[in-house]
């Protein structure tokens, strides 16, 4: 294989966890990588760039149970501006919930996109507890899985992987309470205020 183009399609790409996942991937991938972020104004430039790569890795968060609009819109542009040689498309998707399976629909949508548009489909890494896992000791499990994921793309032995925090759902809920409470505190907002049931009132 040749070079891989890592496309971060997070709506907050410059400050995203997806950016951190892409960095880790690049550390473990033993061939050349190039990192790009999807912006409203760079779709065509990214489409042209895909010509130079044997592989694409889409890195993005799950939004409302599926692909974020940032990625959806880029895919629509790519559909009408495809490269002449279709690279193999792999997927690294994360969600904030503990179950990595909650990412399945997004993966299926991309798989369908590849089938319909003639792109070979590569490997998949589904990350659960994706909002917090990077800042916990469980980061080592994440790194180990990214390493395997990267190796599968490098060797073209494509496979599907998943990783999450190895704790019970109850523990996860308690840990996420603490995480979000701290997040609010940084903004001067209490847990009680965050728990308001009011919407736009």
């Amino acid at each position: 294989m040749g070079k891989i183009m890592m496309i971060n399609a997070s709506p907050r790409a410059p400050k995203s966890n997806s950016k951190e996942y892409a960095k880790l991937f690049a550390q473990y991938f033993s061939s050349e990588t190039e990192y790009c972020e999807v912006k409203k104004s760079n779709h065509l430039m990214l489409c042209q760039k895909t010509e130079n790569f044997s592989d694409i890795l889409f890195v993005f968060p799950l939004y409302a149970d599926s692909l974020p609009v940032t990625l959806l819109n880029f895919l629509k542009t790519l559909e009408v501006n495809p490269p002449q040689r279709k690279p193999t498309i792999s997927v690294l998707v994360n969600c904030g919930f503990i179950e990595p399976e909650q990412n399945n629909i997004a993966v299926e949508m991309l798989r369908l996109y590849c089938t319909t548009n003639g792109y070979p489909f590569g490997s998949v890494l589904k990350i659960g507890s994706g909002e917090a896992i990077l800042t916990t000791p469980f980061r080592i499990f994440l790194k180990a899985k990214i390493k395997k994921f990267a190796a599968s793309i490098k060797t073209q032995k494509y496979d599907t992987f998943q990783v999450t925090m190895p704790i019970s759902k109850k523990m996860f809920i308690r840990a996420s309470d603490v995480y979000w409470e701290k997040y609010g505190k940084k903004n001067g907002v209490t847990k009680e205020e965050m728990k308001t049931m009011k919407i736009e009132e």
Partner: peptide, 24 residues
């Protein structure tokens, strides 16, 4: 689109998250 909502609806659904709390 691609087995999901197309852009207009998906944009709104993503902006719907104030109806939820951060808590799980």
């Amino acid at each position: 689109k691609y087995g999901g909502y197309d852009t207009i609806m998906k944009t709104m659904l993503e902006r719907n998250i104030p109806v939820q709390q951060a808590f799980i």
